[in-house]
């Protein structure tokens, strides 16, 4: 264990040091080879110009290389793979896509993804809005928001353990240690294996994501609420509007843009949802979604890169328009760049 810690420490220092070393070293070299305090003014001016033309690329270089390698290259490669057979050797045209849309499991994934899309963003945004409005009027509102927000810091795997414990099932007659079955038992109903109930189990998985993401919606929407000019609320009160009318006629329209950004951000997240399904059910009991299906085709049972890649492209095509819209909307909200 001690050896492990020392090894880890050295590795960390080397990795981070290497990165610092690159930036310091390359800039030092540039200043050294083309010194700004050269003997005569003319060459100093020339050197400064060379520095000015070179330095941006020293700054930008690592980022461009990494982006090309880790994102641009894979996008192109995946696209290419999606038109090839399982090992990536033979061109098969649209066969992988044709397979996908006739495959029952793929259809189930699409169905489940749509189910998630219909429920999670709406529920998170709604809950977030309600909590933001409620806590805004409390002196301990910030503490309350922190607690709602906290699950966002927890990993999907950690969340899965937490929720597996909530959904835990013991045979009928035994003492239930999962709180959900205990509550159900309290009302005299029989305990259920929640995550194995076909169709309904989807909702028990969604609850986890709602639990995690509502805090995000709350915080963003609370900030937007605070940005509403108080005059408009006061004016509405003077105009005789009640609290509910003020809420949906004055407040909601003014933060409408933010609501949409929250909604779409969670939508994109849901389209890519993977970890919860992997750790809770591992796609069993008809809970598979697109990302998990893709993962299974890529890494399980020998793998079929062509089919996996085709599913990846489907995900990206679904995400792309929402994301573009989202970025534009967010920029509009910030009035920014």
């Amino acid at each position: 264990m001690t050896a492990q810690i020392i090894y880890a420490f050295i590795t960390v220092v080397l990795g981070v040091g290497g990165c610092f070393g690159y930036f310091y070293g390359s800039n030092w070299l540039l200043d050294r080879i083309f010194p700004a305090n050269a003997s005569n003014d003319a060459s100093a001016v020339r050197n400064l110009r060379i520095q000015a033309n070179t330095r941006p690329w020293l700054f930008l270089g690592p980022a461009l290389i990494l982006l090309s390698l880790y994102l641009i290259f894979p996008v192109i490669q995946t696209f290419w793979l999606s038109f090839h057979d399982r090992a990536g050797n033979k061109f098969v045209g649209f066969a992988n896509y044709a397979w996908a849309f006739s495959d029952d499991e793929f259809r189930l994934s699409i169905f489940n993804n749509i189910l998630w899309l219909a429920v999670v963003p709406a529920l998170c945004t709604l809950m977030g809005l309600v909590i933001a409005v409620l806590t805004d009027r409390l002196w301990w509102g910030n503490l309350a928001k922190s607690l709602i927000f906290m699950p966002l810091a927890i990993s999907f795997v950690g969340a899965s353990v937490i929720w597996k414990f909530v959904y835990d099932y013991r045979g009928e007659g035994q003492e239930q240690i999962g709180i959900l079955n205990a509550v159900v038992g309290y009302f005299g109903l029989s305990p259920q294996v929640w995550i194995a109930l076909p169709f309904w189990n989807n909702f028990f998985l969604m609850a986890i994501l709602v639990w995690i993401q509502t805090g995000f919606a709350t915080v963003i929407l609370a900030a937007a609420l605070r940005g509403i000019p108080e005059d408009t609320l006061e004016a509405a009160t003077i105009d005789g509007a009640g609290p509910f009318k003020i809420f949906y006629r004055i407040m909601v329209p003014q933060i409408y843009g933010t609501i949409l950004v929250v909604w779409t951000t969670i939508t994109v997240l849901v389209l890519k949802i993977f970890d919860i399904v992997l750790t809770m059910t591992n796609s069993q009991w008809d809970t598979t979604v697109l990302a998990n299906l893709m993962f299974d085709w890529m890494f399980r049972g020998g793998g079929d890169f062509g089919r996996g890649a085709a599913i990846a492209i489907v995900i990206m095509v679904a995400v792309l328009p929402i994301m573009i819209w989202n970025i534009r909307q967010a920029n509009k909200e910030q009035g920014g760049h």
């Binding site: 982006l67 994102l71 995946t78 389209l271 890519k272 890529m298 990206m316 995400v319 994301m323």
Partner: peptide, 24 residues
């Protein structure tokens, strides 16, 4: 152009990069 491309890369689903990178 560089800025536009970088912003565009925000949309790439992570899972998609895995196979090409693993092969690499």
């Amino acid at each position: 152009l560089i800025i536009a491309i970088i912003v565009g890369l925000l949309v790439v689903p992570l899972q998609m990069s895995l196979i090409p990178l693993l092969k690499l």
